[in-house]
Design a protein around this nucleic acid. Structure first.
Lengths: 357, 357
DNA sequence: TGTATACATGATAGCGCAACCATTGTGCTT
DNA sequence: AAGCACAATGGTTGCGCTATCATGTATACA
């Protein structure tokens, strides 16, 4: 048997025998040996270069480059309990809303030297719980998650985690830690007010997937109509399946069919549905906005360019991501944050599709 | 001074004093103590439960649950040199093309117990190099990256990495390891052939961002037109800025202006540009497809629903992500793969916007 | 009855790195 | 000339986990 205190040769047996050669991973110690310094100095060159004299620094850096040394983050994280990882949980990768928020998060996190570990919860609190477990096992230094409908168990983890957490997308009554979002209910309410203001009277609602935020928009819609005595539950058409342009068209057709076409305006909970409704209306030769108003939500780029242009609710998605990330970063670097709760607001972009006046 | 061989109390001084209590992280050893077994047995319960008797397993699991134990992946990875992480590098988060590929990757990786560490290279090989360094420092077990224009240094890393690597999106002459994609050049060529077949004669080209894949499509366009003696470089309008519907409209206007409107067909390198061109054409009262054909690329959902429906090139993005992930998984689990190079193909969806016949 | 064979569990030794503290050397003050 | 502060470097230890090997125990077979 080979003596086990020999750190160079060590375990040549079996496994290594098959495929070694240049195989052996380069470690801090290899770099230290190559450059004639101690391991800790190499570590400093990488993490706190200002603490090392220039001559040594250059010397070590040369060794790093020539050996192609890449630090092992797992060892580093274990030793320092700093992972430089931020966990992010979103309900869907295929929804442009979240990918734009993500862009904001990546921008800020990247600039601050943090990696992002992203998980997709598929709109399921149970899956979210599992995913957040996964995130936590990576000892993230912060967490950005979506909405407030976590499971009990999940909330427990999160409270124990003792790291900054941002719940984003919607405004929460009782956030776990920090919160960035906007008032979906009020936005829905305002949309309907706008439609009423334009003289539309029988306002339908089209919704898909029906996640908590979409539900809130629907409540706003309902409230606004009830206030003027014009709520009719038959004007609501929803489906649990994901949103898409195709689904928007289908729901629109079914709304028109079930109401015998008396509806003169439609509030779609997102722009995909709205575009679907609009394209379908065009095919049905319904004139928008003369005979039918269509309003979307999110204000994706197409809304401004389609003919007629589509009224929608603009929300700063990228900015929300930036804000969420920024709050985490500030907490991690002991900088003050103005508030634990941030309302990003929204703005109704009034365009041709709802302008009858 | 406190004796240092006491692992329970150990360092009460300073730091801990401020905020401990429930603070102390739960480790494998805590679970082991709580359930009266050794640490390694707890490890087995988590990683190879079939190796532990049922009674012990239940007993340990109970302790895990009641303590809310979450394993430390860094320690695990360090000890086992298995990270269960796959690195993914894409050029842009805001491009639907990549987010759909991502969806496929996440689906497969999630199902196989792998986490995905995602980085955004912003279409820059230099940034890509930096990002891939970051990925490698996490000791990923596999890597999925975009295209083939890595820097020399980056290729060096990758070759040294000794992990399965898939380069995706385009077909490469000399891939680093594995490759999944389709022939962009041929797709561009086929699009032009289709337009010619429909009787269009002066075919323009609109491109944005001009990444390598877009360039290949343009080469295909050029080749097809040269073959019939109808190539005119003045029919090409491009911009380095990112694609968008707005940019599509602008480029279309400028194409029409610079050619005095003689162009009777436009090949747009993606559907955003094509939609922009289409909406702009509508505003200019140009009849599509009678007086102008418009063809896009990628076949996003809107293409099929817009009026007139938009001809586009359909590529299995989700499927490409699935394929790439699957190849990695297969290699990691020593299953055979049919081939290191996979051509996903594409299909021209001929729709109203190019159908004059 | 003894020995081979599996199976279940435990003890020990690192994985690669950074925290912590110790040591050395340099220049400065008085 | 002695003392001190501080900057630059190194030695040791342990982060939390798993690979490896060792040990114990039950079952099988001759």
């Amino acid at each position: 048997m080979v003596a086990k205190n020999n750190s160079q040769v060590q375990t040549l047996p079996m496994k290594t025998a098959k495929k070694r050669l240049t195989d052996k991973k380069i470690t801090l110690v290899d770099v230290a040996n190559a450059s004639g310094v101690s391991a800790i100095t190499v570590s400093r060159v990488i993490n706190q270069p200002e603490k090392v004299s220039e001559s040594l620094r250059i010397q070590v850096q040369k060794a790093i480059d020539s050996l192609g040394y890449i630090p092992n983050q797992h060892a580093s994280s274990l030793a320092s309990s700093k992972s430089r990882v931020i966990g992010v949980a979103i309900p869907s990768l295929s929804n442009i809303v979240f990918t734009e928020v993500l862009r904001g998060i990546y921008e800020v996190m990247g600039a601050n030297g943090y990696k992002v570990l992203l998980v997709d919860t598929h709109y399921s609190p149970l899956e979210e719980e599992k995913m957040i477990r996964t995130l936590l096992s990576q000892s993230p230094e912060g967490l950005i998650i979506t909405g407030g409908d976590q499971t009990k168990a999940c909330q427990n983890f999160l409270n124990k985690a003792r790291i900054p957490i941002v719940q984003m997308m919607e405004l929460l009554a009782d956030p776990i830690d920090m919160n960035v979002g906007f008032a979906h209910g009020r936005a829905g309410y305002d949309v309907v007010k706008h439609l009423i203001g334009q003289g539309y009277e029988r306002i339908g609602f089209i919704g898909a997937r029906m996640d908590p935020r979409v539900q809130q928009r629907m409540q706003g819609y309902k409230l606004a109509l009830e206030q003027v005595g014009k709520f009719d539950k038959n004007f609501i058409v929803t489906t649990p399946e994901p949103s898409s342009i195709g689904v928007g068209g289908e729901l629109f057709k079914s709304l028109m069919a079930s109401t015998n076409g008396v509806v003169d305006a439609v509030f779609c909970v997102n722009d995909d549905l709205a575009l679907g409704a609009l394209f379908e209306a065009q095919r049905m030769n319904i004139r928008v906005p003369q005979n039918l108003a269509i309003c979307g939500f999110n204000d994706i780029e197409a809304a401004a360019y389609v003919n007629p242009s589509l009224t929608s609710v603009s929300v700063g998605r990228y900015e929300m991501g930036v804000k969420a990330a920024d709050m985490i970063i500030r907490v991690l670097s002991d900088k003050p944050i103005e508030s634990k709760k941030v309302d990003m607001g929204y703005e109704i972009r009034k365009r041709a599709s709802t302008s009858r006046l």
